[in-house]
Computed example of a mutant assay.
Amino acid sequence: MVPFPDLDRAVEGADVVVALTSSARAVVEPRHLAAGGTVLGLGGGAEISAGVLTVADRFFVDDPGYAGVTGSVAAWLADGLPSDTLHTRLTGGLPAVAAGMLPGRTAPSQRILAVVQGLAARDVALATLALNRLDIR
Rank of each mutant, 00 (worst) to 15 (best):
G45R: 12
A26V: 11
A35P: 15
L81Y: 04
I112Y: 00
T88E: 09
G80P: 11
D57R: 09
L42M: 14
G41R: 04
L42Q: 10
V69I: 02
S22D: 13
A99N: 01
S22H: 09
Q117G: 12
L129A: 10
F60K: 11
A24K: 15
F59P: 04
G68L: 14
V18M: 14
G36E: 05
I136R: 15
L53Y: 13
D57E: 11
G92T: 11
A50F: 03
G65K: 01
G36L: 03
A46N: 10
V28T: 07
I112S: 01
G41P: 10
A19I: 02
A50Y: 01
R89G: 04
G118T: 03
L131C: 10
G80R: 12
E29R: 12
A56R: 13
A35R: 15
V69T: 08
L126M: 10
G104Y: 06
V18P: 11
S109Q: 13
A19W: 05
A125Q: 14
Q117M: 02
V55T: 12
H32G: 08
L40K: 01
T106A: 07
L53P: 07
G44R: 14
S23W: 09
A75P: 08
A10S: 06
D6K: 00
R133A: 08
G68I: 14
V124S: 14
A130E: 06
G41S: 11
L94E: 00
P3F: 06
F4E: 03
N132W: 03
G37H: 01
P5M: 00
V27I: 09
L7T: 03
T106D: 12
T91M: 07
I48P: 07
G80Q: 11
P82I: 04
I48H: 02
M101N: 05
S109K: 12
E47G: 15
T38F: 01
A130Q: 03
V55H: 02
P95K: 12
M101V: 03
V18G: 07
S23M: 04
R137E: 12
G80A: 03
Y66Q: 12
V52D: 12
V116I: 11
D123F: 06
V11N: 07
R122P: 02
G13H: 09
G93D: 11
V52T: 06
A120Y: 03
R122L: 13
A96K: 09
M101F: 00
R31C: 00
Q117L: 05
L86R: 05
E12F: 02
A46W: 08
P95N: 08
D62F: 10
S109C: 04
A14K: 05
L42A: 09
G100T: 05
A67M: 14
L42R: 04
T70Q: 10
G93M: 07
P5G: 01
L134D: 04
A26W: 04
V61L: 15
G37Q: 05
R89E: 03
P108L: 06
V2G: 07
Q110M: 01
V11Q: 11
V55N: 01
T128P: 03
G43T: 03
A34R: 14
A107R: 15
